[in-house]
Nucleic acid binder design. Structure first.
Lengths: 177, 177
DNA sequence: TTGACAAGACCGTCCAGCCGGTACAGTAAG
DNA sequence: CTTACTGTACCGGCTGGACGGTCTTGTCAA
């Protein structure tokens, strides 16, 4: 089970995300990823027998990281709601000027179904948020606005300035109550 | 200047969007588009000398269609603001169960820079909306929420029900004033 | 020695772009 | 009217290259 030198799996996953971000989602080839990860193509295929498995791994690690981060935020003192935690987490995620999830585009190009777990996750999150509030209208606005913020970051759209994003987050937190 | 039988250019553009939507953004090959458009590969290459030019054409026609639709909405009686027009237009766009712009993913895979005109367009639109209101916070929330709605439609995420989307739109229109 | 794992040459497939051809409309000289 | 010529619109086979995935060989820790 244990890799010989280090944890190749995670190195490969990180390398894949890097390649997609820096060389563009269309340039995510197995060779590029292997090279970036300091691993041979054979080594990569040993860990991920197929490109599809690699994509799947990307999605799974993304989701588990997100879940962990959200849980951590929600458990922090001073958060009156999961929605607030989600807003703040997303705000921080979107601080990074570089989109960290360009690999999603590669995954979609490979097969749109790779996003199914992400959709399911979002549905589940939305459900959880719905149970928390009785003002569905406000929740919808907040939830979609966060979605919009995340999508802008994903597409690397620098439409909003730093101050505008801060104001947006403040407004959302106010709406969230 | 005039095409002999019909307007191949538009047929090809429509075919490309169809292929991306139905076969997936990763399957947008020139042959597939040509076949779908009822045109040979050579004919396609005659109209769009390069795949890049095809993508560019897709972006341009998308943008000009959008601009036209927005202008039409804004000119309609009963619209007190461009923001309201934008909200309603986006709501209608997202009515369609099938995302009409999957080709964007193909374009990104080809080269992320293809989206530059779209980003510029959005910046311009946001600027215009800013000049229209004095409540920047509300505008930000609305603008981003619409962005979120559009992105959900693009990713074909059926997280929201019909009623929820209607409620969202109503809430946004209320915020927009 | 052995077996878990890595290396990279290799193969089949797919696709963008090229190129030589075809069909036809217009024009204009004979 | 006819023949010859020109430019436009389109066709489809070909090829060179890239990429995913396999296979054989190498290597190192136990």
């Amino acid at each position: 089970m244990r890799p010989r030198r280090a944890n190749s799996r995670e190195k490969i996953l990180a390398a894949a995300a890097d390649v997609a971000r820096e060389a563009g989602p269309g340039s995510l080839s197995l060779e590029a990823v292997a090279s970036r990860a300091g691993v041979s193509k054979g080594g990569l295929l040993y860990n991920f027998p197929t490109k599809a498995k690699l994509m799947q791994g990307l999605v799974e690690s993304y989701l588990s990281d997100f879940q962990k981060a959200l849980e951590a935020r929600a458990a922090e003192a001073g958060h009156e709601s999961v929605l607030s935690a989600y807003i703040k987490l997303s705000a921080d995620d979107c601080e990074q000027p570089k989109p960290s999830a360009s690999w999603m585009f590669s995954a979609i190009a490979e097969d749109p179904d790779f996003l199914t777990p992400i959709k399911a996750f979002k549905r589940q999150l939305f459900q959880r948020l719905k149970e928390e509030t009785d003002d569905l209208g406000s929740l919808l606005v907040c939830f979609l606005a966060i979605e919009g913020m995340r999508s802008m970051n994903l597409f690397d759209s620098d439409v909003l300035s730093e101050e505008e994003r801060a104001l947006l987050v403040a407004s959302l937190l106010k709406i969230a109550g």
